Amino acid sequence: MTMERRTTASDPAPTAGQAPGGRAAPAVRLDGVCVRFHTKTRDVTALSEVGLDVAAGEFIAIVGPSGCGKSTLLKLVAGLLAPTAGEVRLSGERVRGPRHDIGYVFQRAALLEWRSARRNILLQAEMRGLPPVAARRRADELITMTGLDGFADAYPHELSGGMQQRVALCRALLHKPPVLLMDEPFGALDALTREQMNTELNRVRRETGPTVLLVTHSIPEACYLADRVVVMSPRPGTVTEIIEVGLPAERDYTETMERPEFREAAGRIRTLLGSVSAHH
């Protein structure tokens, strides 16, 4: 396990798809990002000087105290929120508004009750105007990949919470997004189902290959799934430390929990978050 901390880059702005010096641009870059909200009674700084580079195909987990700006960070990457200062780039291109090429999975599956699992997944294709035949083929591939065979025609009320989140994951992956954002997607599930979904997500991610940013409050989940874990400070949120987990890509859940790399990374995160709690 190694720890690192990224400082704000001062290089000239790269062209789309490139980093300074002609290197491939990071899939996601946050450079000196600050977010301030203004209300009638006060100004709130949600994020302060956040810097982060995420390589293509990398899985990043983001942990930190409640209210530190983790979800705000995902909204910045999605283009749903503009930074007050600094910039956000996807593959070298500055994010200037809502990005339609990303995938987004939320804590609640938000399925339409009157549509079957397959038709909920295909809603993405309808909204994007994707070719129907290819979209249906892709949906069927994802249904098989996520263990939903036999439930494609079931309605949301006939599905467990874990199955509903599988549908939401399929919907987010239907258009083969290069970047997948996940905001506490398994937070409402029971412990056993959450472990099963962690295992499923690890496998699906290896088979589909997107860059993933996952917000979670679960340290074991972060360490099991991620290549690196970003630990954030209390509000105003900034990057306290970035921890490289150092686990193999293919990970058995039970065996991984006993690996020294997992224990070391999880222990370091607990120490950092414990220090945070002690001083706030």
Rank of each mutant, 00 (worst) to 15 (best):
residue 171 R to E: 04
residue 21 G to A: 05
residue 81 L to N: 01
residue 169 L to M: 10
residue 246 G to I: 08
residue 71 S to G: 06
residue 139 A to Q: 07
residue 54 V to P: 00
residue 181 L to F: 01
residue 37 F to N: 07
residue 193 T to A: 11
residue 16 A to V: 13
residue 15 T to N: 15
residue 41 T to V: 10
residue 238 T to H: 07
residue 217 H to W: 00
residue 269 I to F: 03
residue 71 S to C: 08
residue 159 L to A: 05
residue 190 D to C: 06
residue 212 V to E: 00
residue 259 R to W: 03
residue 261 E to P: 11
residue 257 M to P: 05
residue 173 L to F: 03
residue 167 V to H: 01
residue 95 V to I: 09
residue 163 M to H: 08
residue 266 A to G: 08
residue 189 L to K: 14
residue 153 D to H: 03
residue 40 K to Y: 13
residue 123 L to I: 03
residue 136 R to Y: 05
residue 133 V to Y: 07
residue 234 P to F: 03
residue 215 V to W: 00
residue 78 A to M: 06
residue 68 C to H: 01
residue 223 C to V: 15
residue 133 V to M: 11
residue 209 G to E: 08
residue 207 E to V: 13
residue 183 D to G: 02
residue 118 R to V: 09
residue 227 D to M: 13
residue 279 H to Y: 10
residue 143 I to C: 03
residue 199 T to G: 12
residue 41 T to C: 09
residue 173 L to I: 09
residue 280 H to T: 13
residue 140 D to H: 08
residue 163 M to P: 05
residue 207 E to S: 06
residue 200 E to R: 02
residue 32 G to V: 10
residue 51 G to T: 15
residue 246 G to F: 02
residue 143 I to K: 02
residue 246 G to K: 06
residue 77 V to M: 01
residue 15 T to R: 15
residue 259 R to D: 04
residue 246 G to E: 03
residue 277 S to N: 11
residue 222 A to S: 04
residue 63 V to Q: 01
residue 55 A to Y: 03
residue 209 G to K: 13
residue 264 E to A: 14
residue 37 F to D: 03
residue 104 Y to V: 09
residue 148 L to K: 05
residue 228 R to L: 09
residue 14 P to R: 07
residue 102 I to R: 05
residue 61 A to G: 12
residue 196 Q to A: 15
residue 272 L to C: 05
residue 93 E to D: 04
residue 103 G to M: 02
residue 32 G to E: 02
residue 235 R to A: 10
residue 12 P to G: 14
residue 124 Q to D: 09
